[in-house]
């Protein structure tokens, strides 16, 4: 985790640091067991439609299901991070697949089925000079040759 002082998250409520560890904030339906990320705004479960959603922590462990290294800047000026960058689908042990950014320093070693760990990274520095953080998935140390 980049412990940047005064950094702000891309959006409030996506993740938290609890018990010393980083977790994503999700919902789990107590009736059907379906898991959601981010937390739902609508008060019922999108699968069984019962109003039995409970907050849960997701991560930090995950496994890459698919990914793409993007060589072009996204249109529309919404994204202000570096290019190239990578994002993909990551399976979490809580039984949910989510879309997430993949840590920028490891674009060359990314692979399907690679074990990754939740982290945060400064995506860009805002016009007010505030670092803006995103949650990212980083290959586990044993996969990172540079740090062996």
């Amino acid at each position: 985790m980049d412990n940047i002082r005064n950094a702000r998250p891309l959006e409030e409520g996506l993740w938290t640091v609890a018990d010393g560890g980083l977790s994503l904030l999700g919902h789990r339906c107590a009736s059907c067991g379906e898991v959601f990320f981010p937390r739902r705004k609508c008060s019922h479960c999108a699968h069984c439609f019962r109003r039995t959603l409970e907050e849960i922590y997701l991560g930090p462990k995950g496994k890459i299901a698919s990914f793409s290294v993007v060589m072009i800047a996204p249109a529309g000026d919404f994204y202000r991070g570096p290019v190239p960058y990578a994002y993909g689908c990551v399976d979490l042990p809580e039984g949910i697949r989510i879309k997430g950014l993949l840590a920028r320093d490891y674009l060359d070693i990314l692979a399907v089925a690679m074990e990754v760990r939740l982290s945060t990274e400064v995506l860009y520095v805002s016009d007010e000079e505030i670092p803006v953080e995103a949650f990212v998935f980083k290959p586990l140390k044993e996969n990172r040759k540079d740090e062996q």
């Binding site: 793409s68 072009i72 800047a73 996204p74 249109a75 994204y79 202000r80 994002y87 879309k99 997430g100």
Partner: peptide, 27 residues
């Protein structure tokens, strides 16, 4: 120029998830 696909949530747009070739690439 590249077309901004806006059928995404704000945090997804800010994360750069609106590159349709990349979404198709995942599939």
């Amino acid at each position: 120029g590249p077309i901004p696909s806006t059928a995404f949530r704000p945090w997804e747009l800010a994360s750069g998830f609106n590159v349709q070739p990349a979404n198709y690439a995942n599939l």
